[in-house]
Amino acid sequence: MRNTVQLLDRRYLFPVLAAVSLAIMPSLAWAEVAGTPPATPPAAVAVPAPVSPAPTAPTPAATANTFDQARIIVVEWKIKKGHEQEFLDYWAKKSVVSDRTGLVAEFMTTPESKDKYPWISWASIDANSPDYSAFYNIGIWKQAGDYVGQIGKYIDLNRPSLPFEADKRHRVLLAPAEWRIGMSSLPTKDAEGVK
């Protein structure tokens, strides 16, 4: 089974996703201010001292509010027991993002075990359900229009569930409020077999 992103308590999910997405968005990094003052001429030469420009604070390469436009989509899938690989193959090979220009990253994830991590308290996660296996698709997009143009325009709430689905999908679109940048980075290539 593919590597998964560990899901946390709901109140921590968005900050974690926002930090992950910023780790790969270099346009939001601070620009480096370089430069050294000119060398001082010898004392015997009467030259007026150079006028140095007033020191300035580092200027962001893009305003910090640029990320306000980003959106994070979380889709909960409930997949019938025994059909998990069929679903993963569908997501990896048929549910393709044809234009990734506005896609920052997308992860198909499974919840970790509450037995292993008893602090998991997300109410809708029941990894031990006899009827279905839960999967969470987490997509980070440059802006809402990018998501709507590639995925959202195809969402039809009246369409019947796919044969491997135990229930209809649930979605939430998240808008960044605050964020921080970490020192780690995302993978630089797709998981094996994903188109």
Rank of each mutant, 00 (worst) to 15 (best):
V16G: 04
L17K: 02
A18C: 15
A19K: 13
L22W: 09
M25H: 08
P26C: 13
S27R: 12
L28R: 03
E32F: 05
E32L: 09
V33I: 12
T36R: 14
P37Y: 04
P37M: 11
P37R: 12
A39I: 06
A44R: 09
V47Q: 14
P48I: 06
P48Y: 04
P53Y: 03
P55L: 09
T59Y: 05
T63K: 12
T63E: 12
A70W: 00
A70S: 13
I72Y: 00
K80T: 10
K80I: 02
K81F: 01
E84F: 00
E84N: 00
E86I: 09
L88C: 14
A92I: 03
A92Q: 11
K93H: 03
K93A: 06
V96P: 01
V97P: 00
T101R: 13
T101Q: 02
T101A: 15
L103Q: 00
A105W: 06
E106C: 07
F107R: 11
F107A: 11
T109S: 10
P111S: 01
E112T: 05
D115M: 08
K116C: 04
I120C: 00
S121N: 15
W122V: 12
A123T: 09
N128M: 06
S129R: 08
P130H: 09
D131Y: 05
Y132K: 11
Y132L: 02
S133Y: 02
A134V: 14
F135N: 01
Y136T: 07
N137L: 14
I138R: 01
I138G: 02
I140Y: 02
I140W: 04
W141Y: 07
K142I: 11
A144K: 14
Q150A: 13
Q150V: 07
D156M: 01
L157V: 12
